[in-house]
């Protein structure tokens, strides 16, 4: 399933990031987000706005357009 299909508060493991734009992927890697990592959806902004994720105690925001390209597995 896709990250965009996750509900608020749910946890998931990232399965595939290969479809994400290179610059975004690099920035996510800088923040320690890569395949195999566990994330939690904290909040999603309205009107297909950004997603707030929790990853190992740090909080980060990404766009909806990226969330639809991230393959995850719900935990």
């Amino acid at each position: 399933m896709l990250l965009s299909e996750l509900n608020r508060g749910e946890k998931a493991r990232i399965v595939d990031l290969s479809r994400v734009n290179d610059m975004v992927k690099r920035r996510l890697l800088d923040l320690g987000v890569m395949e195999g990592m566990e994330i939690q959806l904290k909040e999603r902004m309205p009107f297909k706005g950004p997603f707030m994720l929790n990853h190992g105690g740090q909080c980060l925001g990404i766009r909806h357009q990226e969330a639809v390209q991230i393959e995850i597995k719900r935990l």
Partner: peptide, 11 residues
Amino acid sequence: EQSLFVIELPP
């Protein structure tokens, strides 16, 4: 074409 938005939200 491409835009980038990834932001760290510090405590």
